[in-house]
Design a protein around this nucleic acid. Structure first.
Lengths: 205, 205, 205, 205
DNA sequence: TATGAATGAGACTTCATTCAT
DNA sequence: AATGAATGAAGTCTCATTCAT
């Protein structure tokens, strides 16, 4: 909603000052809340109460609401934070080493990490979250980074050319879910990833 | 809307009601509630209130709770009903025609049908639902039917042999999610399915 | 207890049915809530909590909200009920006996009754209450009845002709407040009413 | 903004601060808070939050609470300041010119000024405010000044003798409310004042 | 049996007040 | 002294579930 371009920070109270740097302790609390929220939303869905998040973060409810005036804004912030980290990671991969290997490694990593930590899956599973704000904001960075990763792999002939970034994102979302559905068995989880990667690779014949 | 052949409502297996065969009107009410619940849960998630489901079904809340003593039990019943229909459909496919074609057709159908109606996706997305009860119950029929479908396709050399039924289920769950994430664009949705099927097929080399 | 003329009822849930007659117990509860709300709002202002009103009415909070989905709607309902009773009373006066006496008697009665029960004063003091709904609804009846009372008194030469109904209403609102501000001393309260009536009467010269 | 002539801020009588004369900046902050509070309480009722008042005053909440340890004390201070100004104004009127004219002019002025600025009305409408402190404090000055104004008018035969100061105050409170209830129409507002003045005047016969 | 009114725990959010910086 | 972050009690409202009709 904010036509805010760069800065990711969020002023605690919507005052006139656009991006006050936040006092040290305030910032620490903000991080604690964000982290607790990420854990709990990841582990038990978006229905965990704000009260519980506050407890987990070791602060009062009021503090949560000072930093995130609405539960939805908290959800969005968690989502953005995840995407932001994901974008960094993907970009780093994309710019490093062999395109094919980078692609495979990164896809595997994204899909196969702890489901409760998976940026895409449950954030999207969070259903109601406004994708608008996200797409306009950090979402763009993810798209960009994935685009680079994908393009290089395609140019190297390692990935089929008829897949574009949105499709790749959809596939990642699904694969993360699939891995979660596969349960704890590492063999099964690996197979899921294998099927995805094989499906994405350029066929020999 | 469902490409379902036979009865839409109550399949051979009845689980909730132990003995008493239910009066005609009671049975009709049960079905109406189940149907309304399926629609609303599908369309707007499991957070729709019991009250609203009752209204949509044209009955009082009390009636909903008479048939399904808990919201969770209602959720389970919806889930079971979907799986039951799915099992019928899959079995029918598996027993008909060419194994490879049947497999491809059925996978496509499962994944690419209206997401809000998709049996696996949102029922699982419903998070809290006890899979125990389900796996012990109708789940077995789905597993069985999918097993038949998969085995025949593998024997025909159309599907890689290192995929077992649980993995296939996980993949279906994920693919359904992926298709939903792909949005309304039919081209993208088709690509998602293609990637899945290619990943599942036996490689030439 | 209420000298209420026609049907005052309100359907508990805004459904399709326009004016379902309400079950006996539901109706009783509704009245109890309304009555408790009138007492408490009158005695301690509109800031009394819904919880407390529920307790005073001997019902759960949920019941209050079933009948009045919003605190504001409860406020409005209380307001309407008061105006409704007032309209009945005024009309009855206006149609009975000598115009001048009726006018004086009625004005006195309105202004000098227990302030916490005063229909106009604190309901208006309730600040936020939407006058729209009220004016469109029962408000019209009050205006009408006061119009009759006023016109007859003016035609009888007992009241100055340059006062119209809106002005009279404003004066009543103010006088009620003045009486409240006059405290418990009956002599002072009487004087306030006297000043109002003298101010309203047609001067000799 | 106030049609107030002289000092807007701090009149002779200081009540809150017992001894220490307050540093210059502290004093300025106190005035700013008081002024912001008066504006906001007047415009939007006593429910405006302390936070918002602090913002409007350009200070932090902490500063508001340093000067007025309680919201209620802030309310009282606002009230006192208004009464203080009122006392000055009334006394000035009472001591100037013809008694009858002074009385009429002053009553009109008090009642008919911008309602949101009206000292008596909404301060009293603020309901909870302890009148004790006020009556004991600045209230006395108002009473005194009004007493002078009233006595001289009565001695001049312009005002009925059976009205005492407390009654006059009650009438003023009510009339201010009546004017507010009369809305924006200046004709109606004028009529309200006329009725009051006529009611207060000594009858010819 | 069906109905829908009643219940009350619990969710989100606000705000007066305190306290570390 | 000033600031504004933190606190937590309290308020409004929702909803799964129970129960009288």
């Amino acid at each position: 909603m904010t036509p805010n371009a760069s800065d990711d920070t969020e002023s605690p109270l919507r005052l006139s000052t656009p991006a006050r740097p936040l006092r040290a302790d305030a910032r620490r609390n903000r991080e604690r809340v964000l982290s607790a929220a990420e854990d709990l939303f990841g582990a038990r869905g978006t229905s965990v109460s704000t009260e519980e998040i506050a407890q987990a973060a070791g602060v009062g409810v009021g503090t949560v609401f000072r930093h995130f005036p609405t539960k939805e804004e908290l959800l969005e912030a968690v989502f953005k934070a995840r995407l932001d980290r994901l974008a960094d990671e993907v970009r780093h991969s994309a710019e490093t080493g062999d395109p094919a290997t980078a692609f495979r490694g990164e896809i595997t990593r994204i899909v196969d990490q702890s489901p409760s930590k998976n940026a895409i899956t449950d954030a999207l599973a969070a259903a109601g979250v406004r994708m608008d704000a996200v797409k306009a904001g950090v979402g763009g960075r993810v798209t960009e980074a994935l685009g680079l990763l994908l393009r290089r792999a395609q140019e190297a002939g390692a990935v089929r050319p008829d897949v574009d970034v949105p499709t790749l994102i959809a596939l990642l979302v699904g694969a993360a879910q699939a891995v979660e559905a596969a349960g704890d068995d590492p063999v099964r989880r690996a197979r899921v990833v294998t099927v995805l990667l094989d499906g994405l690779s350029l066929r020999a014949g």
